[in-house]
């Protein structure tokens, strides 16, 4: 029985699977986090620049 099942179960973890997992769990969440954080950082950076211009 085990021998029969063994033929149909993929045992090898392929490199492609790792890349898909990497995309789903690291790259996509990282991009989503940056999508929210980057605009805030831009706003703060602009505010800081304008303050420096005013103080000069």
């Amino acid at each position: 029985m085990i021998a029969i099942l063994n033929d149909h179960v993929a045992h090898n973890i392929m490199i492609a699977s790792l890349f898909i997992g990497l995309f789903a769990w690291v790259l996509a969440p990282g991009a989503a986090l940056l999508a929210g954080g980057f605009p805030i950082q831009l706003v703060y950076a602009r505010r800081l620049t304008s303050r420096r211009v005013v103080s000069n």
Partner: peptide, 17 residues
């Protein structure tokens, strides 16, 4: 090979912000 939680991904920009 991957399980993607779409609502989680959609909430992440708020957490990043």
């Amino acid at each position: 090979v991957a399980v993607v939680y779409i609502p989680w991904l959609l909430s992440l920009p708020l957490i990043g912000a």
